[in-house]
């Protein structure tokens, strides 16, 4: 519930509610469609903060009951990983 269209929705990429609404006007009907037009969810937190907010905004334009239609874009890894984590001495074995 925001009261001004320049309120920040995606903090990582500084995308405002106004930009998201514009993306919807241009035809975006999914979180991914909004992402492609605005870069929302592409930042460091990968949408952890803003995904729910974007879905809320979308809910006024599309039926959000079926999550599979929304391309919400959650992907591996759900926690950051580094290349370093995958390089280890094979000889030492695992676990």
């Amino acid at each position: 519930m925001s009261h001004e269209k320049n309120v920040c929705i995606c903090r990582c990429e500084e995308v405002t509610e106004g930009e998201i609404l514009r993306a919807i006007e241009e035809g975006a009907r999914t979180v991914k469609g909004i992402k492609i037009r605005t870069q929302a969810t592409m930042g460091l937190c990968q949408g952890r903060t803003c995904r729910r907010l974007i879905v809320n905004i979308l809910s006024k334009h599309v039926d959000i009951n079926d999550i599979s239609k929304l391309e919400i874009g959650i992907r591996v890894p759900v926690r950051t990983i580094k290349i370093k984590n995958f390089i280890y001495d094979e000889g030492k074995g695992y676990e």
């Binding site: 591996v76 759900v78 984590n85």
Partner: peptide
């Protein structure tokens, strides 16, 4: 830190800087 669940019920996680499953 579990970073993913893969097909065939494999759970990938990072611990002590090492990736394990």
């Amino acid at each position: 830190e579990v970073y993913g669940i893969f097909d065939d019920m494999t759970v990938g996680y990072i611990r002590n800087g090492v990736e394990k499953a």
